[in-house]
């Protein structure tokens, strides 16, 4: 059960015990982390599960798909750290990963 650290926009931190194989989005919503809406339930159809992950952690993840990139592209809060959390699967390789939450979901 890897630990995932969610950091709200206002700085509040939450450490969550996530399950291998579930998405970061599911780890967040199952633990009532505010700031992730996930309206489409993880289908990569809504972009309301936007998170920011710094380069060091990003390098440990599977790269994003074209669909994910397109969904992110027009997000006003997009940075190079942007990912959709429903597309990131929890594994032991990312034990301790830090996930920053944006101020808004669109």
């Amino acid at each position: 059960m890897p630990t995932v650290k969610f950091i709200e926009f206002n700085g509040t931190e939450h450490n969550v015990e996530a399950n291998n194989g579930e998405s970061i989005m599911v780890a967040a919503t199952s633990n009532l982390i505010p700031g992730i809406d996930a309206d489409c339930g993880g289908e990569c159809s809504c972009a309301t599960c936007h998170v920011l992950i710094d380069a060091e952690w990003r390098a440990k993840l599977e790269p994003s798909t074209d669909t994910e990139e397109s969904m992110l592209d027009l997000n006003p809060d997009r940075t190079e750290d942007s990912r959709l959390s429903c597309q990131i699967i929890v594994s032991d390789a990312i034990e301790g990963i830090k996930i920053n939450l944006p101020e808004f979901q669109y």
Binding site: S45, A47, S70, L74, P76
Partner: peptide, 11 residues
């Protein structure tokens, strides 16, 4: 198959 167009329309 045009997620960008979808996202732009939302805005």
């Amino acid at each position: 198959n045009s997620p960008k167009e979808f996202m732009v329309c939302k805005q």
